[in-house]
């Protein structure tokens, strides 16, 4: 102690104190910051809900009702969860056009992801529902592609075709192609069952199952898919193959036949 007090007027003492103070402040900040951040998040959440409510009032309320209770033009959104909002708005399906065909198509997305999150926060505040999945849930790590293929053929191919090229449903409705669809949106679609699609909650298709299916789709129906046989012809099966055989196969052969027949040995030049 004596030593310390003896040096308290040392020219470098102020510097040492300053360093100690800085270290203490930094350490304290490091120790308490998460707590204070969580504190701040709560307000961000309520802020998001507020912002979402405003966005909702402008873009959604005319069909889904001012409180999300639904009207004759749109279903209730109580309990659909953030995942449904993220899917519907994130793929551009919502807001729907005032007059649409048999089914709401995916369109240009008109909200930013931040706005979508705010809308999702507001909707999930109306009632508990599936939340937006994280990258760990739909990412490729630990996925079994072959298992995903089997699950896809069992649960999805009836409407979406063997490799997710899409297919027709009744009266102009359709199962859309899954090519180029964000894995997050595929996950959310399975979770929430948009439009004509049945929902596959975790009790039906576990988180791992969904991950497998997404990995399978990525393997067979994405930019990175390798078609060993050449042109895929839409991946639609025998109809497009038959058309191709007729037009390019037989067509080319008939053209060749015409060419061969036109070049004949002639007894006399005409």
């Amino acid at each position: 102690m004596k030593k310390l007090s003896a040096r308290r007027r040392h020219p470098l003492a102020a510097l040492v104190v300053l360093l100690l103070a800085l270290a203490a402040t930094g350490g304290l900040y490091a120790a308490f910051a998460p707590a204070s951040k969580a504190q701040a998040d709560d307000t961000a959440q309520s802020l998001a809900i507020d912002e979402g409510k405003k966005l909702y009032a402008v873009g959604c309320a005319s069909c889904h009702g001012t409180g999300g209770q639904g009207t004759s033009d749109g279903p209730s959104l109580v309990g659909v969860g953030a995942a449904a909002v993220d899917f519907q708005v994130g793929t551009g399906r919502m807001p729907a056009a005032t007059s649409q065909g048999a089914q709401v198509p995916s369109k240009k997305v008109i909200y930013t992801q931040a706005e979508i999150d705010q809308l999702a926060a507001f909707i999930s505040s109306l009632g508990a529902g599936p939340s937006v999945p994280t990258d760990a849930e739909y990412g490729p790590e630990g996925a079994d592609i072959a298992k995903g293929g089997e699950l896809f053929r069992t649960n999805c191919a009836q409407c979406h075709n063997f490799t997710g090229k899409g297919g027709a449903l009744t009266k102009g409705k359709y199962a859309p192609t899954l090519e180029g669809v964000d894995p997050k949106h595929i996950y959310e679609a399975m979770q929430t069952g948009p439009q004509n699609m049945p929902s596959f909650p975790d009790t039906t298709l576990s988180e791992q199952n969904k991950k497998d299916i997404i990995a399978y789709l990525h393997a067979v129906n994405s930019d990175e898919t390798n078609n060993p046989g050449g042109l895929e012809l839409g991946g639609l099966g025998p109809v497009s193959e038959g058309l191709f055989a007729w037009i390019f196969g037989l067509g080319a052969l008939i053209a060749v036949a015409v060419w061969v027949a036109a070049r004949t040995a002639k007894a006399k030049k005409s």
């Binding site: 191919a157 063997f162 390019f248």
Partner: peptide
Amino acid sequence: AQINPIWAMGPYRPDQVSTG
């Protein structure tokens, strides 16, 4: 041009079916 990519269709199982 690819034809009948059976690997994309998977093995036959009576409980499975695809559209198209």
